[in-house]
Design a protein around this nucleic acid. Structure first.
Lengths: 226, 226
DNA sequence: TTTAAAATATGATAATTATCATATAATTTT
DNA sequence: AAAATTATATGATAATTATCATATTTTAAA
Protein backbone atom coordinates (compact mmCIF):
# COMPACT_ATOMS: atom_id res chain seq x y z
CA UNK A 1 0.00 0.00 0.00
CA UNK A 2 1.43 3.38 -1.04
CA UNK A 3 2.10 6.20 1.38
CA UNK A 4 -0.20 9.20 1.46
CA UNK A 5 2.43 11.69 2.45
CA UNK A 6 3.82 12.33 -1.02
CA UNK A 7 0.50 11.89 -2.82
CA UNK A 8 -0.63 14.50 -5.32
CA UNK A 9 -4.07 14.53 -3.68
CA UNK A 10 -2.56 15.47 -0.36
CA UNK A 11 -0.75 18.31 -2.07
CA UNK A 12 -3.77 19.86 -3.79
CA UNK A 13 -6.88 18.95 -1.79
CA UNK A 14 -8.35 19.55 1.67
CA UNK A 15 -6.09 16.73 2.84
CA UNK A 16 -3.16 19.14 2.97
CA UNK A 17 -4.32 19.98 6.48
CA UNK A 18 -3.51 16.48 7.74
CA UNK A 19 -0.49 15.91 9.97
CA UNK A 20 1.88 12.94 9.85
CA UNK A 21 -0.06 10.81 12.30
CA UNK A 22 -3.27 11.37 10.44
CA UNK A 23 -1.59 10.49 7.15
CA UNK A 24 -0.30 7.24 8.58
CA UNK A 25 -3.77 6.32 9.79
CA UNK A 26 -5.16 7.27 6.40
CA UNK A 27 -2.64 5.06 4.57
CA UNK A 28 -3.78 2.15 6.70
CA UNK A 29 -7.47 2.44 6.05
CA UNK A 30 -7.55 3.50 2.42
CA UNK A 31 -8.10 1.13 -0.47
CA UNK A 32 -6.83 1.66 -4.02
CA UNK A 33 -8.61 0.94 -7.24
CA UNK A 34 -8.04 1.23 -10.96
CA UNK A 35 -10.87 2.40 -13.19
CA UNK A 36 -10.73 1.89 -16.93
CA UNK A 37 -11.74 4.64 -19.33
CA UNK A 38 -15.49 4.72 -19.73
CA UNK A 39 -16.19 2.85 -16.47
CA UNK A 40 -18.04 4.43 -13.54
CA UNK A 41 -16.55 5.09 -10.13
CA UNK A 42 -20.09 5.43 -8.87
CA UNK A 43 -23.43 6.05 -10.47
CA UNK A 44 -26.47 8.19 -9.79
CA UNK A 45 -28.39 6.64 -6.92
CA UNK A 46 -25.40 4.78 -5.44
CA UNK A 47 -24.69 5.29 -1.77
CA UNK A 48 -21.18 6.71 -1.49
CA UNK A 49 -19.79 5.69 1.83
CA UNK A 50 -16.60 7.69 1.80
CA UNK A 51 -14.55 9.91 -0.46
CA UNK A 52 -12.34 9.10 -3.42
CA UNK A 53 -8.89 10.61 -3.90
CA UNK A 54 -8.00 10.89 -7.57
CA UNK A 55 -4.38 9.91 -7.97
CA UNK A 56 -4.36 9.96 -11.75
CA UNK A 57 -6.78 10.44 -14.62
CA UNK A 58 -9.86 12.56 -15.23
CA UNK A 59 -13.53 11.85 -14.71
CA UNK A 60 -16.80 13.53 -15.54
CA UNK A 61 -19.69 14.05 -13.15
CA UNK A 62 -22.87 13.94 -15.13
CA UNK A 63 -26.58 13.29 -15.11
CA UNK A 64 -28.45 11.29 -17.71
CA UNK A 65 -31.77 12.83 -18.68
CA UNK A 66 -34.98 11.17 -19.83
CA UNK A 67 -34.23 11.93 -23.49
CA UNK A 68 -30.90 10.14 -23.26
CA UNK A 69 -28.65 13.19 -23.06
CA UNK A 70 -25.83 13.20 -20.57
CA UNK A 71 -25.32 16.61 -19.01
CA UNK A 72 -21.79 17.05 -17.68
CA UNK A 73 -21.87 19.13 -14.51
CA UNK A 74 -18.18 19.06 -13.64
CA UNK A 75 -14.84 17.53 -14.58
CA UNK A 76 -12.51 16.28 -11.86
CA UNK A 77 -8.82 15.66 -12.27
CA UNK A 78 -5.85 14.16 -10.44
CA UNK A 79 -5.26 15.81 -7.08
CA UNK A 80 -8.94 16.35 -6.35
CA UNK A 81 -11.47 14.60 -4.16
CA UNK A 82 -14.70 13.01 -5.28
CA UNK A 83 -17.89 11.96 -3.53
CA UNK A 84 -17.84 14.45 -0.63
CA UNK A 85 -21.24 15.94 -1.50
CA UNK A 86 -23.05 12.66 -1.29
CA UNK A 87 -21.12 11.39 1.72
CA UNK A 88 -21.65 14.55 3.76
CA UNK A 89 -25.32 14.88 2.85
CA UNK A 90 -25.90 11.24 3.68
CA UNK A 91 -27.77 10.87 0.42
CA UNK A 92 -27.33 8.70 -2.66
CA UNK A 93 -25.22 10.33 -5.37
CA UNK A 94 -27.21 12.67 -7.62
CA UNK A 95 -24.57 12.47 -10.35
CA UNK A 96 -22.59 9.66 -11.91
CA UNK A 97 -18.78 9.76 -11.96
CA UNK A 98 -17.34 8.14 -15.08
CA UNK A 99 -13.65 7.90 -16.06
CA UNK A 100 -12.64 9.83 -19.19
CA UNK A 101 -9.19 8.23 -19.01
CA UNK A 102 -7.83 5.27 -17.11
CA UNK A 103 -7.78 6.30 -13.46
CA UNK A 104 -6.15 5.48 -10.15
CA UNK A 105 -8.25 6.33 -7.11
CA UNK A 106 -8.04 5.69 -3.39
CA UNK A 107 -11.14 5.28 -1.27
CA UNK A 108 -11.29 6.64 2.28
CA UNK A 109 -14.18 5.25 4.33
CA UNK A 110 -16.67 7.66 5.81
CA UNK A 111 -15.90 6.75 9.43
CA UNK A 112 -12.30 7.84 8.94
CA UNK A 113 -13.28 11.10 7.26
CA UNK A 114 -15.69 11.84 10.08
CA UNK A 115 -12.97 11.25 12.65
CA UNK A 116 -10.78 13.71 10.83
CA UNK A 117 -13.60 16.28 10.69
CA UNK A 118 -13.89 15.97 14.47
CA UNK A 119 -10.23 16.14 15.29
CA UNK A 120 -8.90 18.53 12.66
CA UNK A 121 -10.75 21.80 12.24
CA UNK A 122 -8.48 22.96 9.46
CA UNK A 123 -9.43 19.90 7.44
CA UNK A 124 -13.15 20.66 7.95
CA UNK A 125 -12.57 24.25 7.00
CA UNK A 126 -10.70 23.29 3.84
CA UNK A 127 -13.49 20.94 2.89
CA UNK A 128 -16.08 23.66 3.42
CA UNK A 129 -14.10 26.05 1.28
CA UNK A 130 -13.83 23.50 -1.51
CA UNK A 131 -17.55 22.84 -1.48
CA UNK A 132 -18.25 26.58 -1.43
CA UNK A 133 -15.97 26.90 -4.45
CA UNK A 134 -17.94 24.18 -6.22
CA UNK A 135 -21.14 26.02 -5.37
CA UNK A 136 -19.82 29.24 -6.85
CA UNK A 137 -18.77 27.43 -10.01
CA UNK A 138 -22.15 25.76 -10.29
CA UNK A 139 -23.95 29.12 -9.98
CA UNK A 140 -21.77 30.63 -12.66
CA UNK A 141 -22.20 27.65 -14.95
CA UNK A 142 -25.95 27.95 -14.49
CA UNK A 143 -26.00 31.63 -15.39
CA UNK A 144 -23.81 30.93 -18.38
CA UNK A 145 -26.08 28.18 -19.71
CA UNK A 146 -29.11 30.34 -19.26
CA UNK A 147 -27.79 33.61 -20.66
CA UNK A 148 -25.16 32.83 -23.26
CA UNK A 149 -25.58 31.41 -26.74
CA UNK A 150 -24.24 27.98 -27.63
CA UNK A 151 -21.42 29.61 -29.56
CA UNK A 152 -20.39 31.69 -26.56
CA UNK A 153 -20.54 28.66 -24.29
CA UNK A 154 -18.44 26.56 -26.65
CA UNK A 155 -15.78 29.26 -26.74
CA UNK A 156 -15.92 29.55 -22.96
CA UNK A 157 -15.64 25.80 -22.51
CA UNK A 158 -12.66 25.48 -24.85
CA UNK A 159 -10.89 28.19 -22.89
CA UNK A 160 -11.75 26.46 -19.62
CA UNK A 161 -10.40 23.14 -20.90
CA UNK A 162 -7.17 24.77 -22.05
CA UNK A 163 -6.68 26.52 -18.71
CA UNK A 164 -7.56 23.49 -16.62
CA UNK A 165 -5.97 20.62 -18.51
CA UNK A 166 -3.15 22.33 -20.39
CA UNK A 167 -1.69 21.26 -23.71
CA UNK A 168 -0.08 18.15 -25.16
CA UNK A 169 3.38 18.51 -26.71
CA UNK A 170 1.75 19.03 -30.12
CA UNK A 171 -0.23 21.96 -28.69
CA UNK A 172 -3.60 20.21 -28.64
CA UNK A 173 -5.87 20.25 -25.59
CA UNK A 174 -4.65 18.05 -22.74
CA UNK A 175 -8.04 16.40 -22.40
CA UNK A 176 -9.80 14.39 -25.08
CA UNK A 177 -13.54 14.59 -25.14
CA UNK A 178 -15.85 13.17 -27.76
CA UNK A 179 -18.05 15.69 -29.53
CA UNK A 180 -20.95 14.20 -27.61
CA UNK A 181 -19.21 14.85 -24.29
CA UNK A 182 -18.26 18.37 -25.29
CA UNK A 183 -21.90 18.94 -26.23
CA UNK A 184 -22.86 17.55 -22.82
CA UNK A 185 -20.65 20.12 -21.13
CA UNK A 186 -22.09 23.11 -22.94
CA UNK A 187 -25.63 21.77 -22.84
CA UNK A 188 -26.48 21.46 -26.50
CA UNK A 189 -27.11 18.84 -29.19
CA UNK A 190 -24.10 16.94 -30.47
CA UNK A 191 -24.70 18.13 -34.04
CA UNK A 192 -24.84 21.77 -32.95
CA UNK A 193 -21.55 21.34 -31.15
CA UNK A 194 -19.93 19.70 -34.19
CA UNK A 195 -21.23 22.42 -36.48
CA UNK A 196 -19.83 25.22 -34.32
CA UNK A 197 -16.48 23.47 -34.01
CA UNK A 198 -16.39 23.38 -37.81
CA UNK A 199 -17.19 27.09 -37.91
CA UNK A 200 -14.44 27.89 -35.40
CA UNK A 201 -12.09 25.74 -37.48
CA UNK A 202 -12.93 27.60 -40.70
CA UNK A 203 -12.49 30.92 -38.90
CA UNK A 204 -9.02 29.82 -37.79
CA UNK A 205 -9.86 29.95 -34.08
CA UNK A 206 -9.11 26.27 -33.58
CA UNK A 207 -7.71 23.37 -35.56
CA UNK A 208 -9.30 19.92 -35.68
CA UNK A 209 -7.36 16.72 -36.27
CA UNK A 210 -9.68 13.86 -35.47
CA UNK A 211 -10.55 14.07 -31.80
CA UNK A 212 -7.74 16.52 -31.13
CA UNK A 213 -8.54 20.18 -30.77
CA UNK A 214 -5.83 22.84 -30.92
CA UNK A 215 -6.56 26.41 -29.94
CA UNK A 216 -5.10 28.76 -32.55
CA UNK A 217 -6.46 32.14 -31.52
CA UNK A 218 -7.17 32.35 -27.82
CA UNK A 219 -7.86 36.08 -27.89
CA UNK A 220 -10.59 35.81 -30.50
CA UNK A 221 -12.09 32.89 -28.58
CA UNK A 222 -12.10 35.05 -25.46
CA UNK A 223 -13.83 37.83 -27.33
CA UNK A 224 -16.53 35.39 -28.45
CA UNK A 225 -16.95 33.97 -24.94
CA UNK A 226 -17.34 37.54 -23.53
CA UNK B 1 -32.07 43.24 21.38
CA UNK B 2 -34.19 40.11 20.81
CA UNK B 3 -33.23 36.70 22.06
CA UNK B 4 -31.97 34.08 19.64
CA UNK B 5 -33.33 31.12 21.55
CA UNK B 6 -36.85 31.25 20.16
CA UNK B 7 -35.88 32.53 16.76
CA UNK B 8 -37.22 30.83 13.64
CA UNK B 9 -33.72 30.80 12.18
CA UNK B 10 -32.44 28.84 15.12
CA UNK B 11 -35.23 26.34 14.61
CA UNK B 12 -34.61 25.67 10.91
CA UNK B 13 -30.95 26.39 10.16
CA UNK B 14 -27.53 25.07 11.13
CA UNK B 15 -27.88 27.20 14.25
CA UNK B 16 -30.04 24.51 15.83
CA UNK B 17 -26.79 22.91 16.99
CA UNK B 18 -26.02 25.84 19.30
CA UNK B 19 -26.39 25.43 23.06
CA UNK B 20 -27.74 28.02 25.49
CA UNK B 21 -24.38 29.62 26.21
CA UNK B 22 -23.62 29.97 22.54
CA UNK B 23 -27.05 31.48 21.93
CA UNK B 24 -26.51 34.07 24.63
CA UNK B 25 -23.16 35.03 23.12
CA UNK B 26 -24.82 35.19 19.72
CA UNK B 27 -27.58 37.48 20.96
CA UNK B 28 -24.91 39.84 22.27
CA UNK B 29 -22.93 40.17 19.08
CA UNK B 30 -25.64 40.14 16.45
CA UNK B 31 -27.09 43.23 14.84
CA UNK B 32 -30.58 43.52 13.38
CA UNK B 33 -31.64 45.25 10.22
CA UNK B 34 -34.78 45.91 8.21
CA UNK B 35 -34.63 45.70 4.43
CA UNK B 36 -37.39 47.17 2.29
CA UNK B 37 -38.77 45.29 -0.66
CA UNK B 38 -36.53 45.74 -3.69
CA UNK B 39 -33.49 46.77 -1.65
CA UNK B 40 -30.27 44.71 -1.56
CA UNK B 41 -28.87 42.98 1.51
CA UNK B 42 -25.60 42.76 -0.35
CA UNK B 43 -24.59 42.98 -3.96
CA UNK B 44 -22.29 41.12 -6.30
CA UNK B 45 -18.72 42.07 -5.46
CA UNK B 46 -19.45 43.10 -1.87
CA UNK B 47 -17.32 41.58 0.85
CA UNK B 48 -19.65 39.72 3.20
CA UNK B 49 -18.04 39.65 6.59
CA UNK B 50 -20.46 37.37 8.35
CA UNK B 51 -23.75 35.60 7.83
CA UNK B 52 -27.30 36.89 7.77
CA UNK B 53 -30.16 35.16 9.57
CA UNK B 54 -33.45 35.75 7.82
CA UNK B 55 -36.09 36.36 10.46
CA UNK B 56 -38.85 37.30 8.07
CA UNK B 57 -39.36 37.88 4.38
CA UNK B 58 -37.97 36.38 1.18
CA UNK B 59 -35.03 37.37 -0.97
CA UNK B 60 -33.63 36.38 -4.34
CA UNK B 61 -30.01 35.60 -5.05
CA UNK B 62 -29.27 36.60 -8.60
CA UNK B 63 -26.68 37.65 -11.10
CA UNK B 64 -27.07 40.47 -13.58
CA UNK B 65 -25.71 39.63 -17.03
CA UNK B 66 -24.19 41.91 -19.65
CA UNK B 67 -27.45 42.04 -21.64
CA UNK B 68 -29.32 43.31 -18.58
CA UNK B 69 -31.07 40.08 -17.62
CA UNK B 70 -31.17 39.10 -13.99
CA UNK B 71 -30.76 35.33 -13.55
CA UNK B 72 -32.21 34.16 -10.24
CA UNK B 73 -30.10 31.35 -8.84
CA UNK B 74 -31.95 30.76 -5.60
CA UNK B 75 -34.71 32.06 -3.35
CA UNK B 76 -34.15 32.25 0.38
CA UNK B 77 -36.87 32.53 3.00
CA UNK B 78 -37.37 33.13 6.70
CA UNK B 79 -35.52 30.59 8.83
CA UNK B 80 -32.58 30.31 6.46
CA UNK B 81 -29.06 31.72 6.48
CA UNK B 82 -27.52 33.92 3.84
CA UNK B 83 -23.96 34.84 2.90
CA UNK B 84 -22.17 31.68 4.10
CA UNK B 85 -20.67 30.90 0.70
CA UNK B 86 -18.93 34.19 0.38
CA UNK B 87 -17.90 34.39 4.03
CA UNK B 88 -16.42 30.89 4.09
CA UNK B 89 -14.63 31.25 0.76
CA UNK B 90 -13.23 34.59 1.84
CA UNK B 91 -14.29 36.02 -1.48
CA UNK B 92 -16.58 38.85 -2.54
CA UNK B 93 -20.18 37.75 -3.16
CA UNK B 94 -20.73 36.34 -6.63
CA UNK B 95 -24.47 36.95 -6.40
CA UNK B 96 -26.63 39.82 -5.22
CA UNK B 97 -29.25 39.27 -2.51
CA UNK B 98 -32.31 41.49 -2.99
CA UNK B 99 -35.48 41.52 -0.88
CA UNK B 100 -38.67 40.38 -2.61
CA UNK B 101 -40.69 41.45 0.44
CA UNK B 102 -39.87 43.63 3.41
CA UNK B 103 -37.37 41.67 5.49
CA UNK B 104 -35.95 41.39 8.96
CA UNK B 105 -32.42 40.03 9.14
CA UNK B 106 -29.78 39.63 11.82
CA UNK B 107 -26.10 39.84 11.03
CA UNK B 108 -23.57 37.61 12.81
CA UNK B 109 -19.97 38.76 12.37
CA UNK B 110 -17.49 36.34 10.84
CA UNK B 111 -15.28 36.16 13.94
CA UNK B 112 -18.21 34.84 15.95
CA UNK B 113 -19.13 32.26 13.31
CA UNK B 114 -15.54 31.09 13.15
CA UNK B 115 -15.44 30.66 16.90
CA UNK B 116 -18.54 28.53 16.70
CA UNK B 117 -17.03 26.45 13.89
CA UNK B 118 -14.05 25.77 16.13
CA UNK B 119 -15.96 24.98 19.27
CA UNK B 120 -19.04 23.22 17.94
CA UNK B 121 -18.47 20.41 15.46
CA UNK B 122 -22.17 19.77 15.04
CA UNK B 123 -22.63 23.35 13.89
CA UNK B 124 -19.83 22.93 11.31
CA UNK B 125 -21.34 19.66 10.17
CA UNK B 126 -24.79 21.20 9.79
CA UNK B 127 -23.32 24.03 7.77
CA UNK B 128 -21.50 21.59 5.51
CA UNK B 129 -24.69 19.65 4.97
CA UNK B 130 -26.60 22.79 4.07
CA UNK B 131 -23.98 23.84 1.56
CA UNK B 132 -23.91 20.33 0.10
CA UNK B 133 -27.69 20.54 -0.24
CA UNK B 134 -27.32 23.85 -2.07
CA UNK B 135 -24.75 22.26 -4.35
CA UNK B 136 -27.10 19.41 -5.18
CA UNK B 137 -29.89 21.86 -5.93
CA UNK B 138 -27.62 23.93 -8.13
CA UNK B 139 -26.57 20.85 -10.14
CA UNK B 140 -30.16 19.86 -10.65
CA UNK B 141 -31.20 23.35 -11.62
CA UNK B 142 -28.36 23.39 -14.14
CA UNK B 143 -29.41 20.11 -15.72
CA UNK B 144 -32.99 21.31 -15.83
CA UNK B 145 -32.10 24.56 -17.61
CA UNK B 146 -29.99 22.72 -20.10
CA UNK B 147 -32.28 19.80 -20.88
CA UNK B 148 -35.85 20.93 -20.41
CA UNK B 149 -37.94 23.27 -22.52
CA UNK B 150 -39.09 26.62 -21.21
CA UNK B 151 -42.60 25.21 -20.80
CA UNK B 152 -41.33 22.31 -18.70
CA UNK B 153 -39.23 24.63 -16.57
CA UNK B 154 -42.12 27.01 -15.99
CA UNK B 155 -44.30 24.13 -14.80
CA UNK B 156 -41.47 22.87 -12.61
CA UNK B 157 -40.90 26.31 -11.12
CA UNK B 158 -44.57 26.89 -10.36
CA UNK B 159 -44.66 23.56 -8.52
CA UNK B 160 -41.49 24.46 -6.64
CA UNK B 161 -42.96 27.81 -5.59
CA UNK B 162 -46.16 26.16 -4.40
CA UNK B 163 -44.26 23.56 -2.38
CA UNK B 164 -41.78 25.99 -0.91
CA UNK B 165 -43.91 29.05 -0.17
CA UNK B 166 -47.38 27.57 0.25
CA UNK B 167 -50.65 29.29 -0.50
CA UNK B 168 -52.43 32.43 0.58
CA UNK B 169 -55.94 32.09 2.03
CA UNK B 170 -57.40 32.69 -1.46
CA UNK B 171 -55.37 29.75 -2.78
CA UNK B 172 -52.84 31.80 -4.73
CA UNK B 173 -49.09 31.25 -4.48
CA UNK B 174 -47.60 32.46 -1.21
CA UNK B 175 -44.87 34.36 -3.04
CA UNK B 176 -45.40 37.20 -5.46
CA UNK B 177 -42.93 37.47 -8.28
CA UNK B 178 -43.14 39.80 -11.24
CA UNK B 179 -43.25 38.12 -14.65
CA UNK B 180 -39.71 39.39 -15.14
CA UNK B 181 -38.54 37.69 -11.97
CA UNK B 182 -40.30 34.46 -12.83
CA UNK B 183 -38.60 34.60 -16.24
CA UNK B 184 -35.30 35.16 -14.42
CA UNK B 185 -35.87 31.98 -12.41
CA UNK B 186 -36.55 29.76 -15.39
CA UNK B 187 -33.95 31.45 -17.55
CA UNK B 188 -36.00 32.82 -20.40
CA UNK B 189 -37.24 36.10 -21.87
CA UNK B 190 -40.00 37.90 -19.97
CA UNK B 191 -42.34 37.77 -22.99
CA UNK B 192 -41.85 34.03 -23.36
CA UNK B 193 -42.72 33.57 -19.70
CA UNK B 194 -45.83 35.72 -20.00
CA UNK B 195 -46.93 33.88 -23.12
CA UNK B 196 -46.63 30.48 -21.49
CA UNK B 197 -48.45 31.66 -18.38
CA UNK B 198 -51.28 32.74 -20.68
CA UNK B 199 -51.25 29.30 -22.32
CA UNK B 200 -51.35 27.56 -18.95
CA UNK B 201 -54.20 29.87 -17.98
CA UNK B 202 -56.18 29.02 -21.12
CA UNK B 203 -55.57 25.32 -20.54
CA UNK B 204 -56.98 25.66 -17.02
CA UNK B 205 -53.72 24.68 -15.31
CA UNK B 206 -53.43 27.97 -13.50
CA UNK B 207 -55.48 31.11 -12.95
CA UNK B 208 -54.10 34.62 -13.26
CA UNK B 209 -55.48 37.59 -11.35
CA UNK B 210 -52.99 40.40 -11.79
CA UNK B 211 -49.75 39.36 -10.16
CA UNK B 212 -51.45 36.51 -8.35
CA UNK B 213 -51.06 33.00 -9.68
CA UNK B 214 -53.30 30.17 -8.51
CA UNK B 215 -52.52 26.58 -9.37
CA UNK B 216 -55.68 24.86 -10.57
CA UNK B 217 -54.41 21.50 -11.80
CA UNK B 218 -51.26 20.41 -10.03
CA UNK B 219 -51.25 16.95 -11.58
CA UNK B 220 -51.28 18.21 -15.14
CA UNK B 221 -48.54 20.70 -14.25
CA UNK B 222 -46.50 17.82 -12.85
CA UNK B 223 -47.01 15.85 -16.04
CA UNK B 224 -45.73 18.80 -18.06
CA UNK B 225 -42.73 19.30 -15.77
CA UNK B 226 -41.81 15.57 -16.10
C1' DT C 1 -6.75 -6.39 -44.22
C1' DT C 2 -11.44 -6.36 -44.78
C1' DT C 3 -15.62 -5.63 -42.62
C1' DA C 4 -18.37 -3.69 -39.26
C1' DA C 5 -19.40 -0.27 -36.05
C1' DA C 6 -19.07 4.12 -34.21
C1' DA C 7 -17.95 8.94 -34.48
C1' DT C 8 -17.79 13.03 -37.08
C1' DA C 9 -19.56 16.07 -40.56
C1' DT C 10 -22.94 18.61 -43.15
C1' DG C 11 -27.42 19.69 -45.46
C1' DA C 12 -32.36 20.39 -45.03
C1' DT C 13 -35.91 21.40 -42.23
C1' DA C 14 -38.70 21.91 -38.07
C1' DA C 15 -39.27 23.49 -33.49
C1' DT C 16 -38.27 26.53 -29.97
C1' DT C 17 -37.30 30.82 -28.18
C1' DA C 18 -35.99 35.79 -28.51
C1' DT C 19 -36.85 40.24 -30.12
C1' DC C 20 -39.41 44.09 -31.61
C1' DA C 21 -43.70 46.46 -31.88
C1' DT C 22 -47.69 47.84 -29.88
C1' DA C 23 -51.85 47.49 -27.03
C1' DT C 24 -53.95 47.17 -22.70
C1' DA C 25 -54.07 47.00 -17.82
C1' DA C 26 -52.33 48.05 -13.33
C1' DT C 27 -49.83 50.87 -10.25
C1' DT C 28 -47.73 55.05 -8.73
C1' DT C 29 -47.18 59.87 -8.70
C1' DT C 30 -48.78 64.41 -9.00
C1' DA D 1 -58.89 61.84 -10.18
C1' DA D 2 -55.85 62.57 -13.98
C1' DA D 3 -51.45 61.86 -15.77
C1' DA D 4 -47.43 59.27 -15.95
C1' DT D 5 -45.01 55.29 -15.30
C1' DT D 6 -44.53 50.54 -15.16
C1' DA D 7 -46.13 45.82 -15.82
C1' DT D 8 -48.57 42.61 -18.49
C1' DA D 9 -50.28 40.83 -22.79
C1' DT D 10 -50.17 39.47 -27.58
C1' DG D 11 -48.99 39.57 -32.57
C1' DA D 12 -45.41 39.38 -36.11
C1' DT D 13 -41.09 38.12 -37.17
C1' DA D 14 -36.24 36.85 -36.72
C1' DA D 15 -32.72 34.21 -34.66
C1' DT D 16 -31.20 30.27 -32.50
C1' DT D 17 -31.05 25.58 -31.83
C1' DA D 18 -32.77 20.74 -32.39
C1' DT D 19 -33.92 17.03 -35.22
C1' DC D 20 -33.72 14.02 -39.05
C1' DA D 21 -31.30 12.35 -42.97
C1' DT D 22 -27.31 10.93 -44.96
C1' DA D 23 -22.40 11.05 -46.21
C1' DT D 24 -17.79 10.57 -44.80
C1' DT D 25 -14.22 9.48 -41.80
C1' DT D 26 -12.23 7.12 -37.99
C1' DT D 27 -11.83 3.40 -34.95
C1' DA D 28 -12.59 -1.22 -33.50
C1' DA D 29 -13.43 -5.99 -34.51
C1' DA D 30 -13.41 -10.14 -37.19
Amino acid sequence: MGKCEQCIVREFSSLKALNKDELVKLAECKTSRTIKKGKPIFEEGDVVNGIYCITSGICKMSKLSANGKDQIVKLIKAGELLGQRSMISDEPANLSAVALEDMEVCFIPKSEVMNMFDSNNQFSMNMMKTICGDLKEASEHMVSISQKTVKERLAETLIYLAETFGKNTDGSLGIQLSREELAGMIGTATESCIRLLSDFNKLGLIELQGKKITIKDLNKLKRIAD
